[in-house]
Computed example of a mutant assay.
Amino acid sequence: MTYKLLDQSKRYLITGAAGFIGYFLSKKLLEQGCQVIGLDNMNDYYDVTLKEARLEQLKPYKNFTFIKADIADKAIITHLFETHKPQIVVNLAAQAGVRYSIENPDTYIQSNIIGFFNILEACRHHSVEHLVYASSSSVYGANKKVPFEETDFVDNPVSLYASTKKSNELMAHTYSHLYKIPATGLRFFTVYGPLGRPDMAYFGFTNKYFAGEPIQIFNNGDFENDLYRDFTYIDDIVIGIERLISKPPTDSVPHKVYNIGNNNPEKLMVFIDTLERSLSKATGRKVEFDKAFEPIKPGDVPATYASTDLLHEAVGFKPQTSIEEGLQKFADWYVEYYRVK
């Protein structure tokens, strides 16, 4: 299968450009000579210095423009589209996290609903050629059937975060129907890697270990019925997005939703064992987590496992990175970045 190369004459707007996926995608596009406008509000949901470190690596590119702003601010978004006239928009700005949404619901409505509405409106009035936006595997809720397929029923979310992401899909579909905006939604499955999000389990486990604290594992210590996750390495995710950017939907309602995951679920405990081995290799000493087992948290689901058949059919997407390779890259980066002794 051959893939259409990214058009260097186009202007690409990436919201959430200082975020984990946004940074790696921006870097990939910039390396290919594309013009990238990066937008991020630099909020303190997690360590801002990590976001600043990502941005520092993007600043040397002459074809990169960074704007510190919030997608929930309609006037700023409108002005940005009028000034920069992006032809391709990748909306990765969102308030992430399932558990955080239980304590801080307002943030999710502001960013994920109002902010996304502002992006849709701007795309509507400025003839955007393709809107790619972040959805989430959390829309599948407590579905028992695995692997999750895009045609599955997704009207029973178990967190507000999931509700906002399902709402994004509905909103995008409506705008595609009414205004013929080509839009593609991506249901991400547990993305990990270097320069990742500290609120993700693998990063949090590593932080706890080096702080001399036990890690919390929310599976009741049930190893037979352990949690399953479709851990997907960041480089694989970016390749999938890059290919989809050049393939806007052309149906009568030009809107598509794809799972983007590893299609190879791992038990959480296997993932943890692999992380211990990776950190042992990175530090040159044996690393073993002190584990505290607790009940599964509200909003969490026992298994997330993606069918990626549709994405493979569309753009030949097939993840290449094993958890051994991916976690070793994370561990090596972590030890160097935090100067672990």
Results as ranks from 00 to 15, higher is better:
Lys165Arg: 11
Lys166Trp: 02
Ser167Asp: 01
Asn168Ala: 13
Asn168Lys: 02
Glu169Leu: 10
Met171Asn: 02
Met171His: 06
Ala172Leu: 05
Ala172His: 04
Ala172Glu: 07
His177Arg: 15
Leu178Gly: 00
Ile181Ser: 05
Ile181Gly: 08
Ala183Lys: 05
Gly185Ala: 10
Gly185Asn: 08
Phe189Gln: 10
Thr190Val: 10
Gly193Met: 05
Gly193Thr: 09
Pro198Thr: 15
Met200Val: 14
Met200Arg: 12
Tyr202Arg: 01
Tyr202Cys: 07
Gly204Val: 00
Thr206Phe: 03
Asn207Cys: 04
Lys208Val: 01
Tyr209Gln: 06
Phe210Thr: 08
Pro214Met: 01
Ile215Asn: 03
Ile217Glu: 02
Phe218Asn: 14
Glu224Lys: 15
Asp226Tyr: 03
Leu227Gly: 02
Thr232Lys: 09
Tyr233Leu: 05
Asp236Pro: 13
Ile237Thr: 15
Ile239Glu: 15
Ile241Gly: 13
Ile241Trp: 11
Glu242Arg: 09
Leu244Glu: 07
Leu244Ala: 08
Ser246Arg: 01
Lys247His: 12
Pro249Ser: 06
Ser252Tyr: 14
Ser252Glu: 15
Val253Trp: 05
His255Leu: 03
Lys256Val: 02
Tyr258Val: 06
Asn259Arg: 09
Asn264Asp: 15
Pro265Glu: 11
Lys267His: 11
Val270Met: 05
Ile272Asn: 06
Asp273Cys: 04
Asp273Glu: 14
Asp273Pro: 01
Leu275Met: 09
Leu275Glu: 07
Glu276Phe: 02
Arg277His: 05
Ala282Glu: 03
Thr283Arg: 05
